[in-house]
Design a binder for these strands. Sequence first.
DNA 1: CTGAAAGCGCTTACAG
DNA 2: CTGAAAGCGCTTACAG
Lengths: 349, 349
Amino acid sequence: MARVRLKDVAQAAGVSDATVSLALSGSPRISAKTRKLIEETALRLGYQPNAAARALRTEATNTLGLIIGDVANPFFAELAGEVERLAVREGYSVMLCDSDEDSDRQDAYLSKMLAGSQVDAVMLVPTAAMTPAIRAAGQDARRLVLVDRPIEVPGRGATADYLRSLPVVRSDPKDALRDAATLLAALGHRRVGVVAPPVNTLIGRERRDAIHAALTGQGIAPTDILVEAGDFRQGSGERAMEKLLDNPDRPTAVIAGDGPMAIGVLKELRRAGLRVPTDISVIGFDDAPWLDLFDPPLTTIAQPVHQLAAATVEAILALVRGTKLPSPQALQPACSLVVRSSCGTAPDQ
Amino acid sequence: MARVRLKDVAQAAGVSDATVSLALSGSPRISAKTRKLIEETALRLGYQPNAAARALRTEATNTLGLIIGDVANPFFAELAGEVERLAVREGYSVMLCDSDEDSDRQDAYLSKMLAGSQVDAVMLVPTAAMTPAIRAAGQDARRLVLVDRPIEVPGRGATADYLRSLPVVRSDPKDALRDAATLLAALGHRRVGVVAPPVNTLIGRERRDAIHAALTGQGIAPTDILVEAGDFRQGSGERAMEKLLDNPDRPTAVIAGDGPMAIGVLKELRRAGLRVPTDISVIGFDDAPWLDLFDPPLTTIAQPVHQLAAATVEAILALVRGTKLPSPQALQPACSLVVRSSCGTAPDQ
DNA sequence: CTGAAAGCGCTTACAG
DNA sequence: CTGAAAGCGCTTACAG
């Protein structure tokens, strides 16, 4: 059976195409009687508007793009699920892309979706700093919201200004970090390892600075904060932890920069035969329903996934509809420290 | 800056629209020289074809739909990631939807995507049995591949026949289940609990039958196999385990039907104060990088996610391109038992 | 309150 | 080897 088009509905209802279009879009110009007839006919024939035709005509696709770094990371998976759910509630579909933390793949997606008019706007978790496709999006004043990681926009001019004006949605770990540092200090830890996001990214530097501030705020010396950079993936967490352990005066506690790296840290510790928290304390990043089944249950800095998703969708719809952006606070919901059992008293050196 | 259209490229290159279209699609009718000129011009202007216009004209969107039950389930998240990666390699985008295990939501997505020509075909993890939108897809001979869960197609006629002819991609747990039953029997377990998928679904019954067969094959009496149905979610795993524990003669081992339900089982056990595997042995379903960090590391039936994703993409592209479907074996790759430490000797009753 | 007509940006027979 | 023209299925001024 062929697809039923608007024309078929019009014919069956004995009215013109325009009337059907107007009626189905709820225009007040159509009489209640005609509208009812048309709605029933459309339902009976199983009419579903052709998305391509509508998009071509209206220049709006009613679909949003979402580019994340790694779907296998439960944080992104959960975020994507929430974003999708909220977007659908507003009448939008979402096209999900996984950049696999690769700038080139990210750029390919970005230009295909944006310049090719596949979507109305995109929500992007940038892999790193500025890239050609992000710059191009700025040049064409495309709709973009940055999620989870801010980027550094170098230079001046309209493009840079535009890019800098784009909303950035991400969690604020400051309070949670303060709580984490307080916990660690109270437990007697004086030397802390940090498995940080890439140091050549803004987020990497920010995160590192925030951790530094929290730790030094608790009287820990800057020289006693050992930072190893990872790349957001599990393997890098293992390697970073390995390096931290190589240190002659190794840390008695570690803070991981994201979920997969925390897993990597834990795996490396197990491989090295160290017990958590007896030999070393660990604080992870991102929460998950299974973290309390870990041995030991993992203390972690939980991101407010739901609020992040809500702010992201709100921000992108504001861009698309030209309405007001969420407040700066809404764009940056706070993380919280979930205390379980992976932190213990610092072992005597 | 306005979007650059095909017309702009044509004008800049001094040729007609048709020539540009032909050249960029690699038609041999265009001379090498003209093609080169056009390609350079397109690149210089940053031309990206408008997806909607192309879709309207060609009736092909080059995007595929993927409807899963729950992105927060790491198995689906990983599967979605792999599917997307493979699809992109073949020139397709994927639109991801989360039915949240709700038939109505699933149906809304299905008809919007399929009837509305948003995608060329959809990969569907059905929430349950037949639904109106699936039937409609069968009536219109829409392209569909079923993933992870088969459905029962009742009745006769062209629609039913068509639906029954659609490819179904899912893993075969038989061998892994046999290994699991052997392991349990060798450990002295004679009474086994099963937290199964919904019993009113085909997959639920199949899974239960397969477990029965494996267990009885090891000499366990059918009356010693206690089945409690869940709904694929963590909460149902907790409730099912609770019921299993209520049994006066409770099982000494449990097999969970999917990842979230396995988490639920473990949580309920912990709440009940039972130690794994001393008091009770547990076998989960689906693998994840963090399962060996559990207390105790979880023995599980691992699905071949990569092969599943590959078969799914291959099958859907075969449908779209009209080429040959993967072989039945490829559509049903085998699961394997990953032995860790959650199974131990059966406690004396 | 409703209809006829134009046009969104492509692709593809059809001419030449 | 290249161009002029039609048309995919909608929406939206413009008439009436």
